[in-house]
Design a protein around this nucleic acid. Structure first.
Lengths: 211, 211, 211, 211
DNA sequence: CATGAATGAGCCTTCATTCAT
DNA sequence: AATGAATGAAGGCTCATTCAT
């Protein structure tokens, strides 16, 4: 009947503090960029002193890595694919794109910072590529190959096709991050349009005409 | 029978120097990021002294803007669309994607720098958005609407469809910049795959089945 | 029965640090001139790091303004005049000159810096002129006019006469700052000689002859 | 019957160029201060290139010394005193002050720069003190002592009295340089007021009352 | 001699990091 | 564990000076 142990309490407190700081860092980095943002600003935003940050993180870079970790959701992604196998490809694709885009949209400001820094920081880039992009692509390819074998999707170059889909999602995000008003004001319509495009292509008009 | 005048020679020399410095800046910024890179490194990479940089550029930011100017090819882009109107949509799309991707691929390291900084530099972002992205989108939409009226392409949401295409190209680029090996090693196949996908969609398999 | 509070202690520490730095800046600026002096030298002279200076002062200019603030004693000056009205003009003049010169002498190194920079810094100059010189001159003129109305002093051009007195004091100071040995070695005699001269003029010899 | 020789022509050209540059330097230094002013600005003001300056002057400091040399008029000053001995003291003093102040007024912008820099540049200061101030003071003292012996002026402390006069002139100048409007707008009245003050003192009112 | 582009030492200032309290 | 003052390395930029043309 004893309550949580000392260590457990401490663990919770520590985790909460880290969240508090990472959250502040995310906000500040998103607004000013990683290099432009100062630890002082992060501390102020988190409501702690600069020194406290260094009690929880090795250095400023560690803050960025902690932010990146929030984007590590490989497990969930695998689950998305598994679930999707139950339905036909179109249903799966729409569902998947909607989930992906919705989630990515919530985290867009994190992506802004992460992407900005990854583009010019090889170490960070590789770390993210290995831990997130590569596994996800692999899962997607396997899934896609199964669909192809079942004749559900056109025979095509699976790896590049996957990149095309991932790229389309990523590209939409980036366009939004760059301030494109159309995308930012109608983000909820984007998944449907994109799914329709990826399923039918532009040329489906011919199909319509035929019908 | 006189050779080029003094001023003309000087103009050439000045332009060459600027190119020399901007080139070095592109390389250094691409490797280290705009903020991480130092003017000293740029100078060394350009084979000039730090002071010389400031004889040709107002400040470090001006270097970045000079780099961005290389991405300003709105006129050429308009020409691409005009030419493309002569052929059918599929031909046009393939041609366009190939041209765009090829060009973007050559300039990828510039894009790396520009994108990285634009993501976190609102002023730069807006400048680029207004001078490059917006006009291009407008041209593309007009072009697309004409196609729709002619029944060449499926009735769809033109603005978002355009963003999807642009996003797909941009996204592929970003995936490549993030180090995806599949894309980087087979970049010449990307346009065809992407074009096929955008024309037929994944679901074209159905069409195959029909046949 | 509690000692000074946290905030009070900190306030004291902050004030002490500022004094420490301003003192060092005064010495260094006096020796090398404002522009020639480096923040590194000031830091070294103050026994702190360069960074610490910027924890207490906005920038290098702020150091100079802090030095100038030490010369702002307008209130005290007004009091000097008030007190002086109790005695006759000669007594007042001697008293005033002695006070002024004594004080100015203590602050001579501050004056050296301030004057040097004010001569070539219009903004600083105007600031000082408006906040110190103009008010002082006004007080002096009023005082002087009262004396004239009472017949205590010769009818003369009050404003220019005041400038003559102020100028004489200032000029003596400057001669001293320029290294004149006579003045520097006998500064305590200067007030009497100057007062005598301003009261009687050179020509008072005639009066002696009469007697 | 030959015209001026080659060397003489060259000498004239060189001297003219130096004058041209020193004049420009005086203007620029007066406006921006010695340290704040750049050689580029001086060159532009003189209508020559930066390199040309270095053909005529060792370095930037040499420009300042050249400016100071223009203030070296010891010979003329001695002559002033000699001439003045012919008249009575009052006449001499008025004449002298008028001459001095008039001349100093023309050169006030040079004084601004020179004084500003001398205050904080010991070497410059000493050089000027030895070559200009000291000799002038000596001449004045000798002259003054003769007057005293002839009973023309009150017995007083000659050296300090001289400093008082010189200081008054210098102080008036400095007040003007600091922007005092009264002095700057009525500079032509200053000599008379100052002369009257130095001859009679403020207290001469008593003498008037007596008469 | 004149030019002005090139140079690079050195400045002011910022900011990640440390550490005594 | 929290604080925030102190630190000092490093960066962007200036400018006196040089030198090839």
């Amino acid at each position: 009947m004893s309550g949580p142990r000392r260590d457990e309490v401490r663990e919770l407190v520590v985790r909460a503090r880290r969240e508090q700081i990472v959250g502040a860092a995310t906000r500040v980095f998103a607004e000013k960029g990683f290099r432009r943002a100062t630890t002082r600003e992060v501390a102020r935003a988190a409501g702690v002193s600069e020194g406290t940050i260094y009690n929880y993180f090795e250095d400023k870079d560690a803050l960025l890595l902690a932010i990146l970790d929030r984007l590590n959701e490989t497990e969930r992604r695998a689950a998305d694919f598994e679930e999707g196998m139950a339905t036909d490809f179109r249903g799966f694709l729409e569902h998947y794109l909607r989930r992906r885009i919705a989630w990515i949209w919530e985290s867009r400001e994190i992506f802004r910072v992460a992407l900005s820094e990854m583009l010019v920081n090889a170490e960070l880039r590789e770390r993210y590529l290995r831990s997130v992009v590569d596994p996800t692509m692999k899962i997607a390819e396997d899934n896609f190959r199964t669909r192809m074998e079942q004749g559900e999707v056109r025979e095509t170059e699976a790896p590049l096709a996957m990149r095309s889909v991932a790229g389309a999602v990523l590209g939409i995000l980036v366009l939004g991050l760059l301030g494109d008003k159309e995308i930012n004001s109608r983000s909820d319509e984007v998944p449907d349009v994109l799914a329709g495009l990826l399923i039918h292509g532009f040329g489906a008009a011919e199909g319509d005409r035929r019908g």
